[in-house]
Simulated assay, not measured.
Amino acid sequence: MKINVEVDCTPEEARRFLGLPDFTPVHEKYVANILESMDKGLSPELLETMFKSWAPMGEAGLGMWKQMFDQVSGARK
């Protein structure tokens, strides 16, 4: 037997219903830090340092970002 249930709700309503934490303030702070860094001028070293400290998977996440940037920059050359 197969039963399908459809729930029409916003992501905020689903988060509250499931009891998940609200990370909106953390997200806003993260975005504000990135925008502030971009306004000040982003050097490759600063970008690497930021991603090392902010990347969700540490070094593995940084490697993924670096590979992506290398592919994009290589495609534009």
Rank of each mutant, 00 (worst) to 15 (best):
M1Q: 02
M1T: 05
M1W: 11
K2M: 08
I3V: 15
I3L: 10
N4R: 14
N4K: 11
N4S: 08
V5D: 15
E6A: 10
E6G: 07
E6P: 11
V7Q: 06
T10V: 08
T10E: 04
P11N: 05
E12S: 03
E13V: 10
E13S: 05
A14N: 00
A14M: 08
A14G: 05
A14W: 08
A14I: 08
R15T: 02
R15M: 06
F17W: 14
F17C: 12
L18Q: 08
G19H: 01
G19P: 00
L20S: 14
P21I: 01
P21G: 00
D22N: 14
D22H: 01
F23I: 07
P25K: 01
P25H: 03
V26K: 04
H27E: 07
H27D: 05
H27T: 11
H27A: 14
H27P: 05
H27V: 02
E28P: 09
E28D: 10
E28A: 03
K29N: 07
K29M: 07
K29G: 06
Y30S: 01
Y30E: 02
A32T: 10
N33H: 12
N33R: 10
N33Y: 00
I34R: 00
I34A: 08
I34E: 01
L35D: 12
L35V: 05
L35Q: 04
E36V: 06
E36G: 07
E36I: 08
E36A: 08
S37K: 12
S37N: 12
S37L: 15
S37I: 02
M38H: 05
D39Y: 08
D39N: 07
D39M: 03
K40C: 00
K40N: 09
G41L: 06
L42V: 11
L42R: 02
L42P: 01
S43E: 07
P44I: 02
E45D: 14
L46K: 12
L46A: 15
L47Q: 04
L47S: 06
T49S: 11
T49F: 01
M50E: 04
F51D: 11
K52H: 12
S53I: 12
W54L: 05
W54H: 04
A55W: 04
P56Y: 07
P56V: 03
M57N: 13
G58L: 05
E59R: 04
E59P: 01
G61T: 11
G61Y: 00
L62V: 13
G63V: 05
G63R: 13
G63N: 10
M64N: 14
M64F: 13
W65S: 10
W65M: 05
K66G: 02
Q67E: 12
Q67C: 03
F69W: 13
F69R: 15
D70H: 06
Q71V: 08
Q71K: 08
V72M: 15
S73T: 15
S73H: 10
G74M: 04
G74W: 14
A75W: 04
K77I: 15
